[in-house]
Every structure is written in C-alpha cells, then in structure tokens.
Amino acid sequence: MLVLDVCSSSGLEDWSPDLQKAKVYEKILLDLILGELPPGARLDEQSLAARYDAGLAGVRDALGRLALEGLVIRRARSGTTVAPLDLVDLRQGYEARALIEPHCAGLAARHASKADIAAIKAVFDDAEAAAKARDLPALVAMDQRFHAAVARASGNLALARILIPLQHKAARFWVFSFGGATEAELMADIEQHREVADVIASGDVEASRAAMMRVLSVTPEAVQRPPVEA
C-alpha cells in the first residue's frame, strides 16, 4: 500500500500518522491527487468508510482536514464534493510555492540533521523501477514524501504548515501534465529532485535554493527571496 507519509510532517500534533483518521486522510488524499476521486464527484461518507475500511468518525475528520486544504468542498445540506481543478488557484499556489519552497530548501541546507538528510535522500530509492513501469501512484507518493521531508528539514514549522497543502494541490496538476510523459522525462524529473537532496546534504544554502527553483521551473528573476536566518 502506498503511503504519502505527510501527516508526520504537517505540524498538526493531533494527526499522528498512526491514528486511523490520518491513515484515512492519506488514502483519500492520494485518490484525489490521482483523479480516482475526480473533480466534482460527490463524496458520501458511508461509501468512503466502506471503500477505505474505516470508521465514519475517521472519514469525517479526514474530509474536514481536506476541506481546510481546499481539496474538497463541504456545504450544509448538499454534502461534500471534490474541488475542481482551478487554474487561478493553481497559479496563485504556484506563486506562493515559488517564494516559500526554495527558501525552505535553503533553511534545510543550514539546519537539517543527519536523519533529515537520510530521509530526503531515501525517498527516490526505487524511482527507476517506478519510472520504467510508469507507476504514477508510486511516483506521486515519492514526490509528496520528498517535498514534505524538505519542508520538515527546514526547521520552520510555520512554513511547513503552509507549504505542504500547496504541494498537495499542485500534485493534482502534476499527475495530469505527466500522464503522457516518457520514461526519460520522468527520470529527468527524479534526477532534479535528487540534485536538491545532494546540495542540501552539502550544506550549500544558495545552491539548495537554486536546485529547488529548477524543480519548480522558476527563474531567479521571478522570485524575490527572503534571507535565510541564522
């Protein structure tokens, strides 16, 4: 079973990854990202509980968190639906990530522990096999774990809380855009992420920022970067 492993990086102390609601949240999240629960689909709590072999309370808590992230829409009397793929929302989220995520990579280069570095580097260990098999679910899970691990390694919990939901939204579009990607294109994307891990491990703050910007396809001129604090 794929595990996104983002709950432990979310900064929400009552969302331990061992809790049932956290497990249900990650299962629903992955299906939202992959389009298994398509935009506009109505989400019935009873059906979701049966689908994920979970209790209703865990499903409700998971949907509540996903609503806060803007991935589902909950309305009184009309129920819960999957949020549409909104291009304006995507652009605004991308602009926010372009400012925050390179900064987090720079902070990670300065503050990451050996355990943080090991976690970041280990994410793409099985990536060649996933790319060869065009296993998008596995690649999505790796991508989400990677960016969550970098956010956590930054040591700035406030930034991680902002960044991780933005990454979840962006992943829905990543799946759409990479649906026809070749093995070579998938591997090129993986190698860009590995470069980020390597430069964070080296402790080079500026190189870490630049490497993350390449992952995001952001030019230096497009980002007004906040200084990294000691």
Rank of each mutant, 00 (worst) to 15 (best):
V6M: 05
D14W: 14
W15I: 05
S16W: 05
D18F: 14
D18Q: 10
Q20V: 12
Y25N: 13
E26H: 09
L30Q: 08
D31G: 07
D31W: 03
L32E: 14
L32R: 12
I33M: 13
L34I: 04
P38V: 12
P39V: 06
L43G: 06
D44E: 15
D44N: 15
E45F: 00
L48D: 11
R51N: 08
G55R: 00
A57I: 08
A57L: 10
G58C: 07
V59I: 13
A62R: 12
A62M: 10
L63R: 01
L63Y: 15
G64E: 03
R65G: 01
A67L: 01
G70P: 02
G70Y: 02
V72K: 05
V72M: 13
I73V: 15
R75S: 12
S78T: 14
V82D: 03
D86M: 03
L87A: 06
V88C: 00
D89Y: 01
L90F: 12
L90P: 00
Q92W: 10
G93A: 07
A96I: 02
A96P: 01
A96D: 11
E101T: 13
H103F: 05
C104D: 13
G106Y: 07
G106P: 01
A109M: 08
H111G: 03
S113R: 12
S113G: 06
K114R: 14
A115S: 12
D116N: 15
I117S: 02
A118I: 02
A119G: 00
I120C: 04
I120A: 02
A122M: 03
V123I: 10
A133E: 14
D135P: 02
A138S: 15
V140Q: 05
D143C: 08
R145T: 00
R145D: 04
F146L: 09
V150S: 03
A153F: 00
S154P: 04
L157Y: 07
L157N: 10
L157H: 12
A158L: 11
L159S: 14
A160S: 10
I162G: 00
L166D: 00
A170L: 04
A170M: 07
R172C: 12
F176C: 05
S177P: 00
G179S: 07
A184I: 05
E185V: 02
E185M: 01
A188D: 15
A188L: 03
I190A: 03
Q192C: 04
H193G: 09
V199P: 08
S202W: 06
G203C: 11
D204R: 12
V205A: 09
E206N: 12
A207P: 04
A210V: 15
A210G: 04
M212E: 08
M213Q: 13
V215P: 03
L216F: 09
P220I: 02
A222G: 09
A222M: 09
Q224I: 12
R225L: 14
P227Y: 04
V228W: 07
E229M: 12
E229A: 14
